[in-house]
Structure formats: structure tokens, C-alpha cells
Amino acid sequence: MKIKLYENNKHFTAGMTMKDESGLEKNNMALHVCKNPDHVVENRKMLAAFLNCRLDDFVCAHQTHSANFHRVTLEDKGRGAGQSETAIPDTDALYTFEPNLLLCTFTADCVPVIFSNKVNGLVGVIHSGWQGTVKEITLKLFKHLKQMEGCHPGDFHVQLGAALSQEKFEVDEDVYVKFKDLGYADDFIYYNSQTGKYHIDNQLTVKKQCELAGIPADQIKIDQTCTYLSPDGFSYRQNKKCGRHLTFVMRKR
């Protein structure tokens, strides 16, 4: 099983599963896009064993490219872990103060965001495809954490996982306008006059949103692996029937 560990210490575990040709369904982790749900559950159990936790420690959401987020409590433990019907509905970001819950998000080109706060122990994940980015899910969540949870932006560390590169994220004018209207994404867009397409760096746009929320730039890391170009990547743009990466974070007790 191919896994990228972005952080693994006495406080937090965070990482991202990758495509693996030798695994069941190439290490697909998503129940909503699979040939056999049992294969996905088996992959998740293997991940749980690697992380020294259990499948029912997982917490998953039904992602809808929204700007909705959910504070995870112990009552949410196991939701979406073994069957998609129990996942937290209509939600694209999860956060918690509780230890030993593995918060999960699923991507195939979209930007997965992992964040942790060593001062108060809060951890979370965000699914930010281009729709979530133009809805400013990341900026809205960090503003909420500041205003409603008493977090200080300077206490956060953020990791952006593997995603579609600017080279491969080419869009028409309708999507370009949505990024343009944000007012701060111009530096992350270029126009290809030969193809008539705009190319957008979704990762750098999300990074900018973190900075606008007050998170220091040097506390934001980016995995520059392109999910389209890398053999370890699931890419919806390349193959609409592909599997999904699982990006995770857990606060340790």
C-alpha cells in the first residue's frame, strides 16, 4: 500500500494514500466510485492497520463540492467508514478536538487540505476542488475556527496534498471568471492563446486563502505531485472512472 505520511509524531498523524497498481482496485479508497465495496473496505482496513487504529475510528463525509463544514464529535465515530449511507451528509470539511478519530477526505485532482493546531489540538481536513475553492471553503472554515472556536491563525500548520497541477488544470472562460472574481487569484492564472484555455493553480489559490485567514506562509506546505502526471495519482480529468485518494489526519491522545 502506497501512503505519503506528511506528519507522524507524538501529537498528530497525517497523510495521503496513493494509487497502487498492485492493490485492490489500485488502492481505491472511495465507496462511491468502486467496482466492489468490499475491496474498498479491505483497503481501508489495511490503512487502519498501518496507522495502528481501527476502521470504526474513521469519519467520512458525503462530499458535494460545497462550502459546508462539520465539527466532528465522538458520536460521529465510524460514520461512512464501512458504508457510504452513514457518512456525514453534504459536507466537504471536517474538524475535531477529539483524539483518536481519523478524519478523512477523498480526492482525484481536487486539493486536499490538512490542518493541525499544536496549541489546542484541533485537526481537520478540507476537500477543495475548484468549486470549493471559488466558494472559499478554506477561508470560511478558518474564519469560523477563529471566531467560534477561539483559534489563533498563527497556531495552524497546513499541508496541501497532491492535486491537479496548473499545467493540467485547463478551463474555459466561465471557470476563469469565477477565479478572477475572487480578487486574489490573478497571479495563479495564465492564458494559452494556442488552445484558448486558461490554466489555474488551484493549490496556490487555496494557499492564498490560508494566508488571507492569517496563517503564516511558512507554515503552509504544498505537495507538488500532479495527480494527472504522476503514476501514483488518481485523476478524474484523465479517467472519470478512476478511484480516489484518502487524505487523513488524526490527533493522538
Rank of each mutant, 00 (worst) to 15 (best):
M1N: 06
K2E: 08
Y6P: 00
K10Q: 14
H11Q: 13
G15Y: 11
M16E: 15
T17W: 05
T17K: 07
E21V: 09
G23E: 10
N28R: 07
M29E: 09
A30M: 03
L31H: 08
C34V: 07
C34A: 05
K35I: 02
P37A: 05
D38K: 08
V40R: 03
E42R: 09
N43Q: 02
A48Q: 08
R54Q: 15
D56E: 15
D56P: 00
C60S: 11
C60G: 02
H62R: 10
Q63P: 07
H65W: 08
S66R: 08
N68V: 09
N68P: 03
T73Q: 13
E75F: 11
G82Y: 05
S84L: 14
T86H: 12
T86G: 06
A87W: 08
P89F: 05
D90I: 14
T91Q: 12
D92H: 13
D92Y: 11
F97Y: 14
P99A: 14
P99S: 15
L102E: 04
A108Y: 00
D109Q: 06
I114T: 10
F115R: 12
G121T: 13
L122G: 06
G124E: 09
G124I: 08
V125Y: 12
V125K: 13
S128A: 15
Q131W: 04
G132C: 08
K135C: 05
L141V: 08
H144N: 08
K146A: 11
G150A: 03
G150H: 05
C151P: 09
P153Y: 03
P153V: 03
D155E: 05
F156S: 03
G161M: 09
F169S: 00
E170I: 00
V175M: 08
D181C: 03
D181N: 12
L182T: 04
Y184A: 07
Y184G: 05
A185H: 00
D186Y: 04
D186I: 03
D187G: 15
I189F: 03
Y190A: 00
N192M: 00
S193M: 13
T195P: 04
I200K: 01
D201G: 05
D201F: 09
N202D: 11
Q203W: 04
K207P: 01
K208I: 03
K208C: 07
C210G: 06
E211P: 06
G214E: 03
P216D: 04
I220D: 09
I220C: 06
T227F: 01
D232Q: 11
S235C: 06
Y236I: 13
R237A: 02
R237I: 00
R237S: 03
K240L: 10
K240D: 14
G243Y: 02
L246F: 00
T247W: 05
T247C: 13
F248P: 02
R253F: 14
